[in-house]
């Protein structure tokens, strides 16, 4: 019976495919019928936060930090309320990570401040003497890619109906207007809270340093 398959490669391949596809068909696909619904009150990421998420991805923070608090007392004591599915409804991609060389960050916005982050990203040892995390000084001079973040907001609004306002729309002009009215003021607030003049100056000149976007994102994780 099966032995017949080994002499007929086409049917063999079909057989293999059916067997391996079966698990996916049962296990994975049906979940997509029930869309992951956002929990009540969850807002989509602001464009600045999205730009920060891009920095988080670019410098690959998930290599060492998770964003998933498991439902154990030891975890909730350390990091806060355990994570719920609906909290991730706007996370494309998900950033749970798989390794905690550093602590979990899913609710880091609750117990760290922008100026703590500023010191920490500049020199981790200045706030955690035994830290083995590298300094990310380049984030203080690299400029965050706001345009790509804005493009992402436009895309998810269009394709996945993510509830953004009407001022998120395609085109360069719309972006420039949005940047001036929404992104830069938000960035300035963060930069000031980070208590570093160089960052404030950069934002005032219309350029948002990567670290400001990143901190906006980290502050959002609550």
């Amino acid at each position: 019976m099966f032995h017949w398959l080994e002499k007929h490669p086409f049917f063999f391949a079909v057989g293999v495919f059916v067997v391996i596809a079966y698990a996916g068909l049962i296990e994975v696909l049906p979940n997509f019928m029930e869309k992951a619904r956002p929990i009540k009150g969850l807002k989509p990421y602001t464009v600045l936060e999205l730009a920060g998420k891009e920095v988080y991805k670019k410098d690959n923070c998930i290599a060492c930090h998770s964003q998933l608090i498991r439902p154990f007392k030891a975890e909730t004591d350390r990091y806060g309320q355990y994570s719920m599915s609906g909290e991730y409804a706007y996370d494309r991609p998900f950033l749970w990570g798989s390794k905690r060389t550093g602590p979990d960050l899913h609710r880091v916005g609750r117990y760290r401040t922008p100026d703590w982050h500023a010191n920490h990203m500049w020199n981790p040892k200045s706030v955690v003497p035994d830290s083995i995390m590298p300094a990310y000084k380049h984030q203080f001079t690299n400029v965050a890619d706001l345009e790509t973040a804005y493009a992402e907001a436009v895309t998810v609004k269009k394709v996945f109906n993510t509830p953004y306002g009407d001022d998120i729309k395609p085109g360069k002009a719309a972006f420039e207007k949005y940047k001036k009215e929404k992104i830069l003021p938000e960035a300035l607030k963060i930069a000031k809270a980070m208590k570093r003049d160089d960052l404030v100056k950069m934002v005032e000149s219309g350029k948002v340093p990567e670290v400001v976007a990143l901190v906006a994102y980290l502050e959002r994780l609550k």
Partner: peptide
């Protein structure tokens, strides 16, 4: 951006 969000992703 990923076609799937959060837990599905």
């Amino acid at each position: 951006v990923s076609m799937y969000a959060g837990t599905n992703d």
